[in-house]
Design a protein around this nucleic acid. Structure first.
Lengths: 122, 122
DNA sequence: ACAGAAATAAGAACTATTCCTAAAATAAAA
DNA sequence: TTTTATTTTAGGAATAGTTCTTATTTCTGT
């Protein structure tokens, strides 16, 4: 546990449920540890994604997003503004009855797409 | 319908169920229309994704993939080799009982992750 | 045939991400 | 505590994927 990793975690905490990009995490982390480098943020996030401490969310037309909440929940992306909202586990049900022969299932990511309330209002 | 768009569609057909990247589509299209440019392939694919003629699949750690099969099916990605397999609609069930207030749901993409048979064998 | 509109090729530009290297921090050994 | 080895970092260069720009070409309607 280095000071840099701590700054990254703190940044993720501050970002709350906004599903920040690596760049946003970098900006937030820099406030506490001005010397931190973007590459370091990427490395830590990538490593944390590998160990399951965070979730990395690939979105079409944009940078990857990160989520501290590794609980079993889903995401819904507004295709207009790009904001990502959470859908609680209890509100979504996924069942897969068949996977390609011999494959070992690791995890699901459900990415729904919507036009969010804010964007519909415009 | 331009010759370029036709070449892109033909390339997608040839790619079959391999979920090609834009680059692969470009390479395939070039065989029939050597003058085609990568930018043109991107533009056509992007437009087709907007109109729903193809599906654009964002994958973590890699280029976007495209799928001619716009029927309601799901994808499963091997985290080792990056291959994407299909899961037929009948084999997966997704239910969402609640979306963020005021949001209009557009579509789902379920991206499961696995280690595929080929990679397990190694 | 001609004017205007839409689509293209080519490559420059841009963004997100990874890689490289030397320096710094940390841990282990003496 | 000094020395050595290991890990991690900052900084920036390099790369990959994608978009944008511009001049040119192709279509469309008259």
């Amino acid at each position: 546990m280095t000071a840099q990793k701590m700054a990254v975690i703190r940044a993720l905490e501050e970002a709350g449920r906004t599903h920040p990009t690596a760049d946003t995490v970098y900006a937030l982390a820099k406030r506490h540890l001005p010397s931190i480098a973007l590459g370091t943020v990427y490395r830590n996030l990538t490593k944390m994604a590998e160990t399951g401490e965070v979730i990395k969310i690939a979105v079409p037309d944009g940078a990857d997003r990160f989520d501290m909440d590794v609980s079993d929940h889903m995401h819904i992306l507004c295709v207009k503004c790009g904001k990502i909202y959470d859908i609680e586990e209890k509100d979504v049900k996924v069942e897969i009855s068949s996977v390609p022969a011999g494959a070992e299932l690791i995890r699901f990511d459900v990415m729904a797409k919507c036009i969010c309330a804010d964007c519909k209002a415009v």
